[in-house]
Amino acid sequence: MDLFDLPLPILFGQLMLGLLNGSFYAMLSLGLAVIFGLLNIVNFAHGAQYMLGAFLTWMLLTYLGIGFWGALIIVPIVAGLTGMVIERVLIAPLADADHLYGLLLTFGIALVIQGGFQVAYGAAGIPYRIPEALAGGQRFGAIFLPNYRLFVLVVSLTVCIGLWLAIEKTNLGAYLRAATENPELVSVFGINVPLLVSVTYGLGAALAGFAGVLAAPIYSVNPTMGVELLIIVFAVVVVGGMGSIAGAVVTALVLGLIEALTKIVYPEAASIVIFVIMIIVLMVRPTGIFGRTA
């Protein structure tokens, strides 16, 4: 099928969906990259923390009557604090061990969180209603854009840009970058590196939780929603390389778009196209498009 034969609304709908998925890839790969930079571990629990965010959103509404807007503030804080505790209690003792142990550990943590929610709520998806204020949509001629999706797109991009500014322009960001390069030297200057590590991990977890809140009204809330997304995010990270934050965001959005376009042109390949791109990038440029040559 030719792209240009498509009715404009369908094309736009798909592109919108692609950008939307891409913005989720961006938020999650950012958290992964920041954690990886400082802790040198791939956080396999990232998907579970995202799922936790979505579930907490639903639980706040169901058990405490706190709606979407409250969740948008409470959930990242809870997820971040949980993350800091996990880092302190479980991950910190592994600081000197091989990176692979960190990977296995976080994978175990993911299994515990995921299994726990499966025990409590089963494997079926739970719906979450779009907040009142964001129901409906905008109509531009034949094109209809749902308000909530526009909102997610704007908010997630704002968060990504905000994080980028925070890392590049603030003092804390400078400490973070310095500690990524040489943690021992930074601690000599009187900066509490273990605390910085905990905060960074908490920040990554909070970001994943925040993405989970945004995801709750769009994707159905279920215990395995994180795992499936995380594998794609890994491929995104491999394609983009973990060297630059702006690069990671751009890669995530572009891959989201490519995935959506593939869904129109050749639907069978939509679920594998990102992996195919990953393979090609690895053959041509093993460090990833924006990766630093190690």
Binding site: L90, P93, L94, A97, Y101, L104, L105, F107, G108, I109, A110, L111, V112, I113, Q114, G115, G116, Q118, V119, A123
Partner: peptide, 21 residues
């Protein structure tokens, strides 16, 4: 016990990595 097996496997992962490498 259904999904408890997943939880238990996760705990074994954690225990092995932290205490019984």
């Amino acid at each position: 016990f259904g999904a408890w097996v997943t939880v238990l496997q996760g705990l074994i992962f954690i225990a092995c990595v932290l205490a019984f490498k």
